[in-house]
């Protein structure tokens, strides 16, 4: 039972030993392609998770023409809080708005010297229940609030969120196109390097067939070799991507997305790492199958 397995691995390692350059070329190709792929995946994954985080913070701010009387305010709050989407309503009067603005300006707050609270409008900050934190729900709520002429203006981050989502869509599309292109390029190169190793061993393939080897017997070591090369390439790509991530990507993303600290910028989780390795194995296998078709015909 163990004998055929040992024999199989002996054949695989004999192949690798006899053409180490071609073998490394295949491994290197897979490694480079998958490193680039992992690099772009990391960018997409991180930007996307951050965007999801941001849209979770969606809330509606309704600016008021003038500060309402306490009675009217109470009435409005009650009617807004009745809406199924709404979690809470917070009233921010003009004084509070000015205080917040000053603290945002920090050391530049002396710019506001001489201005009174009347320069900033009072507002209602309406936070939404968790399942309603989407742009559509926000729009429904705003639609209802528009009937109140005292509410002058609404802000729920519609503009930049829309633009950001369009950008994200583009990024994702670009990554997919690039990924497909890279995988096909890698497949092409891997198939051709394997074809070269097969060409170098065509005598052996011919003789094997002549002495009665089944086509599977001939093919399996080459398939295994391809899978091994793919797996090795993927592992190298994982190391390469981790190095790139630690050296450049983390700081780059932190700066780009202006998140505090690097904690929110993450590397591939183990399922994604496994997927990368499987992609490598598949790449090697398909590469071998494609080139074997031309060489092993009985």
């Amino acid at each position: 039972m163990l004998d055929p397995l040992i024999y199989l691995f002996r054949r695989v390692f004999r192949n690798i030993r006899q053409s180490p350059v071609l073998c490394s070329a295949a491994v290197g190709t897979v490694a480079v392609a998958l490193t680039i792929l992992a690099f772009f995946s990391l960018i997409v994954i991180n930007v996307q998770s951050l965007a999801a985080h941001w849209s979770e913070e969606i809330q509606i701010v309704a600016y008021l023409e003038r500060e309402p009387s306490p009675a009217r305010l109470k009435q409005w709050r009650a009617s807004i809080e009745e809406m199924p989407e709404v979690a809470a309503v917070l009233y921010v009067d003009q004084q509070e708005a000015l205080r917040r603005f000053k603290s945002r300006l920090g050391s530049d707050s002396d710019l506001l010297e001489g201005f009174g609270a009347e320069i900033l409008p009072a507002s209602l900050e309406i936070s939404l229940r968790e399942q309603y934190r989407t742009r559509e729900s926000a729009e429904t709520v705003v639609g209802r609030l528009r009937h109140n002429p005292e509410l002058a203006e609404f802000n729920y981050g519609q503009d930049w969120l829309e633009r950001f989502e369009a950008f994200l869509e583009l990024l994702r599309f670009g990554a997919v196109v690039l990924g497909i292109f890279l995988l096909f390029a890698a497949l092409f190169i891997v198939a051709n390097t394997i074809k070269l190793t097969l060409y170098a061993r065509r005598d052996e393939l011919e003789i094997m067939a002549l002495v009665g080897a089944t086509s599977w017997f001939i093919k399996i070591p080459f398939l295994l070799e391809g899978a091994l090369q793919g797996a090795l390439g993927a592992l190298l790509a994982l190391i390469g991507a981790l190095a790139l991530f630690q050296l450049f990507l983390r700081q780059g993303l932190v700066a780009l997305l202006s998140v505090s600290g690097g904690d929110q910028v993450v590397f591939l989780v183990w399922q994604q790492q496994l997927m990368l390795v499987c992609t490598g194995i598949l790449l090697g296998l398909v590469g071998s199958v494609l080139s074997l078709r031309k060489f092993v015909r009985i």
Binding site: D203, E204, E206, I207, V211, G212, T214, I298
Partner: peptide, 22 residues
Amino acid sequence: GSSHVPQLRRHTGIVFQDFKLL
């Protein structure tokens, strides 16, 4: 069928002018 070819060849010895040794 071509899957039976190996079986046939296992009962057939073949010798060539150019030996075809590895």
